[in-house]
Write a protein that binds this DNA or RNA. Structure first.
Length: 423
DNA sequence: TCTGGGGTCCTAGGACCC
DNA sequence: TCTGGGGTCCTAGGACCC
């Protein structure tokens, strides 16, 4: 029996999260900004209707935001991560055969349903998620993941679907695919959209009908797979046990320019602590570390970008060891005379902690340092990330990322829980 | 003044080996 | 004049995703 996929996607996820705990935002335009309150990364429907684009710098639309009383939020990833988990746990109850694809999307395998039942089930899931979490979702159903993505798009944009659309029950699929622009197909980015357009291919239905050899030559195996998926031949299966991570990164723009090595060392040290926490959270250790730094490409003035990759002597998840290597790296690439905007620390060559190949000459007391790291992570989990920090991360931190308009961590910090007033 | 962050996969080309 | 062939591994860069 051919598979059937449903894609459940949260509507305007970050904006919806803000709304759940602040009901007076219902019906109002909302935007959520990236780190340092730089760009728009989420918009409510009302904000989209004002013509606010995805990724637009906040300063460029400031007058518009003010004129329409748009509610502006800094991003609050602690809140969004927790809300995501609630949504996914709800979906899990409906369909354990699922893949959490991103913070706001999951693919489900719906087998053994008739067409009528599928749509009904979609509506039940949708209303349950809304009732249990407050988050509105849309459901797209089809025989491949790529088509389920398209079905979801239709569900989201066509009010009379009630938020659920089953492409298998669509009487004229070609007409529908003819209305989907090729750049809106999952897997077609700006570059391939341009290439396809030059060959007269502008809609999903045209893409579906291209010659196999031609698409293989133009877009490689990925392109051919995509076209097969559009034809209803499933090539992308559910990935239920996610492959172990290959890399972990912490890279961030600074809240204020850095122009001294000391401050750069603080920032890199702080970013390394963060990525090391992620590493331990995944129960992995790293064998390769890359540090990078860059000036502001948007500004005039001297530019400098550089990165350095260091092979670690022994795979480690121990923050001080990682900081030592990162600092050694940043010293080597740092040049005086620039205004730095951003730095990053990436860990690669990840191996499960249980399988670390130790060095004959490695005298480090690993048992002791593991206990220390657990204690550190425990304190930070209890009191909030950054409660306990390494001195090398600095104290004043003028460079720290700015979040001027952040909502409370409504669901993860006792002192920030929403208060319900009796009245 | 002010422009995000974190990932994956594929491919082409070079180095190296037999 | 004439300059193999095939395999593997690694890396950098491109393209895409949310």
């Amino acid at each position: 029996m051919p598979p059937i996929f449903a894609l459940v996607d949260c509507n305007n996820f970050y904006a919806s999260c803000e709304r759940v705990f602040n009901p007076r935002l219902e019906g109002q335009p909302i935007v959520v900004l990236s780190n340092n309150d730089g760009c728009v990364i989420a918009r409510s429907n009302e904000a989209k209707a004002l013509g606010i684009g995805m990724g637009v710098p906040e300063f460029q639309i400031r007058p518009l935001l003010r004129a329409h009383k748009v509610q502006v939020f800094s991003s609050n990833y602690t809140l969004y991560g927790d809300m995501s988990q609630r949504v996914m746990e709800t979906l899990e109850q409906f369909c354990p055969d699922n893949e959490i694809y991103s913070i706001d999307e999951a693919f489900l395998r719906l087998s053994g349903f008739t067409a009528r039942n599928r749509t009904d089930y979609g509506h039940t899931m949708r209303s349950t998620v809304k009732q249990w979490t407050g988050i509105p979702v849309s459901v797209g159903i089809a025989e491949t993941k790529t088509l389920a993505k398209i079905a979801n798009r239709v569900a989201k944009r066509t009010p009379d679907t009630g938020g659920v659309f089953d492409l298998l029950a669509c009487p004229d699929r070609d007409a529908l695919l003819g209305r989907i622009a090729v750049h809106d197909v999952w897997g077609i980015g700006p570059n391939h959209a341009h290439l396809l357009k030059q060959h007269g291919i502008t809609t999903a239905v045209q893409l579906q009908q291209v010659d196999d050899q031609w698409i293989r030559k133009q877009m490689g195996i990925v392109g051919l797979r995509l076209v097969m998926e559009l034809r209803g031949v499933s090539c992308l299966d559910l990935e239920q046990c996610p492959a172990p991570k290959q890399s972990l990164t912490c890279s961030r723009a600074f809240g204020a320019f850095i122009s001294t090595l000391t401050e750069m060392e603080e920032a890199v040290s702080s970013y390394t602590s963060r990525v090391a926490e992620k590493l331990r959270g995944e129960r992995l250790a790293a064998t390769v570390l890359t540090v990078s730094l860059t000036t502001n490409a948007f500004k005039d003035g001297p530019q400098y970008n550089n990165a350095l990759t260091i092979k670690l002597p022994v795979a480690t998840d121990h923050t001080p060891e990682l900081i030592r290597s990162a600092l050694q790296g940043i010293k080597a690439v740092y040049r005086e005379g620039y205004q730095y905007k951003k730095a990053g620390v990436m860990l690669m060559g990840l191996v499960p902690v249980g399988q670390v190949q130790t060095d004959l000459f490695d005298h480090h007391d690993r048992v002791r340092s593991t206990r220390l790291m657990s204690a550190l992570d425990g304190v930070n989990a209890r009191w909030g990330l950054g409660a306990l920090q390494y001195a090398s991360s600095g104290i004043t931190k003028k460079w720290k990322t700015q979040f001027h308009r952040r909502s409370p961590a409504y669901t993860t910090q006792w002192d920030e829980l929403p208060v319900v007033k009796a009245g």
